[in-house]
Design a protein around this nucleic acid. Structure first.
Lengths: 202, 202, 202, 202
DNA sequence: CATGAATGAGCGTTCATTCAT
DNA sequence: GATGAATGAACGCTCATTCAT
């Protein structure tokens, strides 16, 4: 029974923090941020309220921290590694990754959707990330992608964004409405629509 | 000097009620139902909290009343007049009307989006309407529409729903991202994709 | 169509005031003073809230005024006309009158019971009447009555007061529990118990 | 330094809950249920409003919990152990226990009196107990008791109930009006009146 | 590290009272 | 005289947060 080493303590801390975060994630995504109480999170995570505040400074910080990693991850996904152009292959893999992410991170996406739909909370969280910048940059690259391939790039970009956003909603909120096989053929359909060779410069 | 007539009172009531409802509509749509307080609504509507309850029985009823007309309107829009089949013309006008509704009822749609994304609140309000039924019926008719025209109707229905949902989000939350002219050509694009003659029966 | 005379106006005022008072009396007695709202009284009396305040200064004053007459009436009932002694005949008629009053003024009595059972409200109302004094005086005379006739006057006075109070509760709150015929024979029983000739002075 | 044990917490809870309940009991009995506010109870109990709700779910539940034990106790008192008949000894001990209860549970009785005198509140609390049933059964047994002993049982039952009710009011609200010695001789007087041998069957 | 008792600001709501008409 | 819209203080209650242990 030697006293636990610092490392072990840290391990425990990390694990407990993770449990809390996951519990909160689930509750936030199900009931919404405002409708979820700290008491409920603590109870479901089987710890005391006091301890929760030992790990997270506030309810808002808890939310922020939960989304932090996910947002960073999304940022890298959104933020193409090259700065000048999106290739067909990149768009294709962007598709795949986004859909994969929606399927595996349903709860994060739900929270994100809720937050983007109301003023206030989100700004605080997003202010710490470059996600706004990344999104803007992506939009420009996207526009260029479509401009290089379609006669009406704005229209096509809008279609692209609509489909993706809508699909996200469906996957995240009514997954039973898009079983895997349908989703697979659906992806093909999307590729048929959006992935085209660049127009030849005359 | 003489007391106000019944008509005058009615006038006052109607007008004030309308002011309150509009203020609440705006705040609910901006900040979300839960994050909006009665105090805030009252302050923004420049009345006392007490008076609000002279016009609306509760916060929930206020929300319900705000959405009531809109939901009924949506229901008739969603609920096709014929029970067996959707024609090309009907789908086209459905498009048009939905997009028109999103543009003119941005705030109602925002609230609706928020509500559908969290358990609880919505059920009470929707329980009084057949919107669930209508939606289900529409889904079936939609499937039939695509089944009559496409080789892979499930996939096509998913595409259709995705585009519509996504477009709704964009129009409602970032209208600056889809100016009228782009939207017009976009509608044509959609029609090209989804409106097709029925496959001939062999 | 000559304009109404002052007298007529007063007549109308008086009548309306009476309607309000009666409505309030009924509600106070049924639901209790605190649980009855001014709005409810006004609605049941078919007048506006504002008008009610034209006739009564406040809810408390309304209550006070309702009880005023009744209390005065009770006071004269309680307050024996002679100052030195209660005769057998007087006690008998006191019996009769009290029971009669309970039967005919059920609602007033209910309010009175409620009020005597809580601090605060009652003091204000009773402070304007001599009912406290009268009661005290009566108690002394009562004691003398029993002292002149019974070996254990204190005990007998307690019995007397208990019976009367309890009977009041029963008549006022569960009148169905004492139909007229039972009540009649009951009165005889009471007289048998309490009405006796004075003990002869040795 | 080390966290409190479960036992310690239980101790604290129990004690504080008791303080709150006693404070509420006193205020309810003095001012009435409706006229007593949660703020007042909290202030008098020297805790915050919030804490009160840590111990009691609502004002109504607080009332219910305060009365719960007392009502159960009353029920067993009221509910005679045998189902067919009340004996002289039982009536005598019923007397004694009732009077004892009124003296020691003055505040509970006050609340009970108040509640029985207004519609609404009481029903909720009583619905959970069989007190209504018990009372009804007692009434039948009581009638039988008097029918077996007196020529006019209805009248005698009414007298019995009146005396008891009235005495309760006096003991509970003006205890100074019935000192112990008077009460003792009073009880004897009552026994003389009501306790008699059964009439012999002819 | 861990507990949950305790706080207090603020919530949705009610209602006696006032006042312009 | 008569109306009911309007007020505001106070109600019962909730909950993020703190802190003694």
């Amino acid at each position: 029974m030697s006293p636990r080493t610092k490392k072990q303590f840290e391990e425990i801390r990390k694990e407990k923090k993770s449990i809390i975060a996951e519990t909160a994630l689930r509750l936030f995504s199900e009931k919404g941020y405002h409708a979820t109480t700290i008491s409920e999170i603590a109870k479901k995570a089987k710890i005391s309220k006091g301890l929760l505040y030992n790990y997270f400074d506030s309810k808002e910080k808890l939310l922020a921290e939960i989304l932090q990693n996910f947002i960073i991850q999304m940022e890298t996904l959104i933020n193409p590694n090259m700065d000048d152009e999106i290739t067909n292959a990149e768009l294709e893999s962007f598709f795949e990754m986004m859909i994969e992410s929606m399927k595996t991170n349903r709860e994060h996406w739900r929270i994100l959707f809720q937050l983007t739909m109301q003023k206030g909370v989100i700004s605080y969280i997003f202010s710490k990330n470059d996600i706004g910048n990344s999104a803007e940059k992506l939009m420009k690259l996207g526009y260029k992608y479509f401009a290089d391939r379609f006669d009406n790039p704005q229209e096509e970009l809008l279609l692209f964004r609509s489909v993706l956003k809508g699909l996200a909603l469906i996957i995240v909120y009514t997954p039973e409405a898009c079983p895997d096989d349908v989703l697979e053929s659906f992806k093909k359909r999307l590729k048929d629509i959006f992935i085209k060779p660049k127009k030849t410069q005359k």
